[in-house]
Design a protein around this nucleic acid. Sequence first.
DNA 1: CAGCTAATTAACTCACTGGTTAACTGCTGG
DNA 2: CCAGCAGTTAACCAGTGAGTTAATTAGCTG
Lengths: 132, 132
Amino acid sequence: MAVAQDQLDATFTALADPTRRAIVARLARGDATVNELAAPFDLTLPGISKHLKVLERCGLISRTRRAQFRPCHLEAGALDSAAAWIEDHRRIWAERFDKLDAHLLEIQRAPDSEPGPAPAARPAPANERRDR
Amino acid sequence: MAVAQDQLDATFTALADPTRRAIVARLARGDATVNELAAPFDLTLPGISKHLKVLERCGLISRTRRAQFRPCHLEAGALDSAAAWIEDHRRIWAERFDKLDAHLLEIQRAPDSEPGPAPAARPAPANERRDR
DNA sequence: CAGCTAATTAACTCACTGGTTAACTGCTGG
DNA sequence: CCAGCAGTTAACCAGTGAGTTAATTAGCTG
């Protein structure tokens, strides 16, 4: 569980950098060598190498040897944990609103049983951001 | 487009910290005050305040004034862009394998029309990582 | 073998992040 | 009004991250 935290830390950290996201995007279209990956960027090769190390450490890419090249390969499975975390919490959030909606319908139908506004917790359920 | 990059940068950066993820998880279950959010952590209040500022800057939460409290509210919409980016690239990756499968079936059926191995580009399409 | 190319490692700089303590603002209730 | 609570701002420190240049490893090729 703590290890899962570290995994999420590392994955989100890796995705937080635009260069690394671009590398992932490039690799999603096919394996590539370090020099190929470096080409689009205004960066020195060691810089790319560092980014690749970050991506490798969190399992997003793997590297093999092929002659003097080290082709990089995207391990899309590592995206799963990050995607799962986000989806989980979007789901929880959505369910909360479903319950809130149900509650609002409830008290609208029977506007007498007001249990009183929670004093400090959940101070402002009033919000409109229901779209998307 | 560049602004979208910054948005993704900020969102993934925000999610990269376990404390901030825990705060988001807490807020997914309902709005909360700063002190309520701070309670589970071994952190001083200014520390929490900083984390909240990070979350606010990337649009993941919003804060209002209610008497002496500043209740925090999760804006789940900000998770959308991050989720969309991940899903996009998982999709591209999956499609790539679909095409690769098609190609493999193709050359398996007619094992003569080898166009020759690409010299440096795409050095190793050979890989077994097909399992999720 | 000599030399070229691919890529990494080492060592360093600079900026930023995460955390602290201390001081401050703003509101409320006695 | 003032004591006190909720929260933020300021100033600082240690650690990390992104980038550089220079040197090094490893494999191919003439």
